[in-house]
Structure formats: structure tokens, C-alpha cells
């Protein structure tokens, strides 16, 4: 077993979280609060570094005055805490919505047109037929604009089966990912804390 205090603290943190498996308890809740606290503190450090490097330092040291605009918009976000001027915070939100919305429209190209193009494959093999029919049937399942005919319902049912296989693959991968996390904690507890695993 290690005598490194850091490893001990990390082990205690891990076990405190795992204690939830027995039952929900006050030690778990306390460590959960510590986690949120560190996350928020860490987030503040990161955001401040970015804003400071990018806007505040150039404004104060080099006199790049255009940075005043986003700084004011940023400060306006705090208006929400004061009822009489709360509406001012919407200006900043609108600004972010405008840019974010415009940039996200590109999704039409990357996730619609390009995906449709990639589905235009010759139907000369079983795999390609699965790909094309599967995609079309899946899309039919999500088609709600008109009252579906019997034929459309049939295709949609096939689409539902395809989606179920996708979700199954998703489930398998979800399990796999969580197992990886468990392994890493076990490697730590029994490798670095208690020397049971040879590292």
C-alpha cells in the first residue's frame, strides 16, 4: 500500500463515490458537492484566462478598443440578476444566438447533403442494399408530415427495426465505455493505492 498522501486522497474520493452503490449517503453527497465546487472554480480559472488573454489584456495594454463591445455584452449578461434591467441580458443572448445559429446552418451540408450523397451507392451488393434501404426506411419512420399510407407504414416498420439494431449497437458501446471507466478506477485503486496489480 502506498504512503503517498495524494494517492490516498484520490482513493478516498473514489471510494466515497462508489459508496453510492451500497446506498445513497451523506458522505457521497458531501463529495458530490466538493466535485461541483472544484468544477466551478476550475471553470472560472479557464474562462478568465481566455477572456483576459484575448480581450482584456489587448484592450488595456495595446489599446485595441474594439474589445470593449464584447466585454460590455458579456457584462450585460449579469443584468438578469437585477429585475429592472434584466431585459438587457437578452441583447447578449441574442448576439450569441445570431452567431451560433448562422454557424450551425452548415449542418445542412455536413449532416444532410453529404450523408445523402454517401447513401447513393449502387445497389449491387447485400451490404449496399441494407445501407440504402435501411437509411430510407429509417427516414420514413421519422416522416410525420402527412397521414401515412399502408405502404409507408410498412416501410416505417422496417425503419423501426433498423433503428433498433442501431440502438442495440449503441447500448453495446455504452456498456463498453462505462466498463472502461470502471477498469481505470480499479487499475488505480488496486495498482497505485494497494499494490495488487503490477503496473
Amino acid at each position: 500500500m502506498t504512503s503517498d498522501i495524494g494517492i490516498w486522497v484520490a482513493a478516498i474520493c473514489t471510494l466515497a463515490m462508489f459508496s453510492f452503490l451500497w446506498k445513497e449517503n451523506s458522505i457521497f453527497r458531501s463529495f458530490q458537492h466538493i466535485y461541483v465546487g472544484i468544477a466551478a472554480g476550475y471553470g472560472m480559472v479557464r474562462q478568465w484566462q481566455a477572456i483576459n488573454n484575448m480581450a482584456i489584456t489587448p484592450l488595456l495594454t495595446k489599446g485595441v478598443t474594439t474589445w470593449i463591445v464584447p466585454i460590455i455584452l458579456g457584462v450585460l449578461l449579469f443584468a438578469r440578476f437585477f429585475k429592472s434591467i434584466a431585459y438587457l441580458s437578452r441583447w447578449s443572448v441574442a448576439f450569441l444566438i445570431g452567431i451560433g445559429g448562422a454557424l450551425s446552418i452548415k449542418i445542412l451540408e455536413t449532416e444532410f447533403i453529404r450523408q445523402a450523397q454517401a447513401t447513393f451507392v449502387p445497389m449491387n451488393s447485400f451490404n449496399n442494399i441494407v445501407l440504402v434501404l435501411g437509411t430510407v426506411a429509417g427516414l420514413c419512420y421519422f416522416y410525420f408530415t402527412i397521414k401515412p399510407s399502408t405502404a409507408l407504414l410498412g416501410v416505417a416498420k422496417l425503419g423501426r427495426y433498423v433503428l433498433m439494431i442501431s440502438f442495440g449497437a449503441g447500448f453495446g458501446n455504452a456498456v463498453m465505455g462505462r466498463v472502461s471507466l470502471l477498469i481505470s478506477r480499479m487499475q488505480f485503486l488496486f495498482g497505485q493505492w494497494i499494490y495488487l496489480i503490477k503496473m
Binding site: T110, R114, Q115, Q117, A118, S166, A169, G170, N173, A174, M176, G177, S180, I183
Partner: peptide
């Protein structure tokens, strides 16, 4: 990507939008 995101990222790889794809610890 993390393993959980593997299935939903595969269509991009299959469409040639990515030159390589890694999925999780495996």
C-alpha cells in the same frame, strides 16, 4: 471519441468526412 459516441460517429467516417476514427479505450 469515447466508446458511447462510436456508433453515431461512424456515418461521418463511412461518408469519407473523416480520414480515421478511434472509438474508446479499445
Amino acid at each position: 471519441v469515447v466508446t458511447v459516441m462510436g456508433p453515431q460517429t461512424t456515418p461521418y467516417y463511412q461518408a469519407g468526412q473523416l480520414v480515421g476514427l478511434l472509438s474508446g479505450l479499445k
